[in-house]
Write a protein that binds this DNA or RNA. Structure first.
Length: 230
DNA sequence: GCGACAG
DNA sequence: ATCTTGTCGC
C-alpha cells in the first residue's frame, strides 16, 4: 500500500496539508463487485489509559453476515486525539490489522467518517486511499455539517448532510428510536448508494454488522466466534 | 473573539 | 475513546 502519511513532518499543521492533498485521490464511483463476497469491519479501542492502541479487523461473509476471520493489533499510541486528525492517531494500527486478515474484503466499513470531514478526508476515506480499498464511513456523531431536512422516524430513512454548499454524507436512521448514523463514502463508493449499502448489512442493531462486531472486539466488549476455517 | 469538535 | 450499575421505556 502507499505510505499513509506521505511526507508528513509530524506537526498538526502539516497533517492538515497532507489531508488536503490526499482528499483529491478519493473516488466517489462505486468500485467493488456487486454484490460483494467479503466485507470487512474496522474499529479502534484503547488500553492502559490510552497508552496502547488496539485495532480490530473482522472479515465477514457478505451473504450470511457471519464472521470468518478476525485480527487484533496492539501498538503504542503515538498521537493524542485531535478533532479532524483522527486518522493520524488510529490508521497505523488499523492498516496492520487489515494486512493480517487472510484476504482483503471487497468492501470495508470503518467506524468514523469518510468524506464528511472538514477537508473531506475522515479516517474511512484515508483508510480507503491508503489501502486502495472500497470503503465507507459509519460514524455515530456529526463532526461537521448539518442535516438539510428533518429525518423521518422510519427505519431506513435518510437525509443529506451538507457542509459548505455540498453534500458530504447522510444521516441514516438504521434503527427506530435510535440516534441516526452518519454515513459517508470513504473511497470507491458512491454518495447515492451509501445509505442502502449500510442498511443491507444491518440486522436488528443500530450499527451494521461489520462495524458492530469490530466495535465489540476493539472495546473488549464480547467475543466474536469465527467459523472454523482450515 | 466564541463555540464546536469522529474516536 | 474510557471510567461504570442500575434503571426507565419501548
Amino acid at each position: 500500500m502507499n505510505a499513509p502519511f506521505g511526507d508528513w513532518d509530524g506537526s498538526t499543521a502539516d497533517a492538515r496539508r497532507v489531508q488536503t492533498e490526499l482528499a483529491e485521490k478519493v473516488s466517489l464511483r462505486d468500485g467493488f463487485p456487486k454484490p460483494p463476497c467479503w466485507i470487512g469491519g474496522f474499529d479502534v479501542g484503547f488500553e492502559d489509559e490510552g497508552t496502547v492502541t488496539r485495532a480490530a479487523a473482522v472479515l465477514l461473509d457478505a451473504r450470511t453476515l457471519q464472521p470468518v476471520a478476525c485480527e487484533v493489533v496492539r501498538m503504542a499510541t503515538t498521537m493524542p486525539y485531535v478533532p479532524g486528525l483522527l486518522s493520524f492517531r488510529e490508521l497505523p494500527a488499523l492498516l496492520q490489522a487489515l494486512q493480517r486478515l487472510p484476504r482483503a474484503p471487497n468492501l470495508a466499513f470503518v467506524d468514523g467518517h469518510g468524506i464528511a470531514h472538514p477537508r473531506r478526508l475522515g479516517i474511512a476515506a484515508h483508510f480507503g486511499v491508503a489501502a486502495d480499498l472500497p470503503c465507507i464511513g459509519v460514524a455515530k456523531k456529526i463532526l461537521v455539517g448539518t442535516a438539510s431536512t428533518a429525518l423521518h422516524d422510519m427505519r431506513g430513512a435518510f437525509t443529506p448532510l451538507r457542509h459548505r454548499g455540498q453534500q458530504i454524507g447522510w444521516l441514516l436512521r438504521s434503527k427506530v428510536r435510535c440516534n441516526p448514523l452518519v454515513v459517508s463514502p470513504g473511497h470507491r463508493v458512491s454518495m447515492a448508494g451509501a445509505p442502502e449499502l449500510v442498511m443491507r448489512y444491518t440486522t436488528t442493531y443500530r450499527l451494521p454488522e461489520p462495524t458492530r462486531l469490530a466495535d465489540r472486539i476493539a472495546s473488549r466488549r464480547g467475543d466474536v466466534d469465527v467459523a472454523a476455517g482450515d
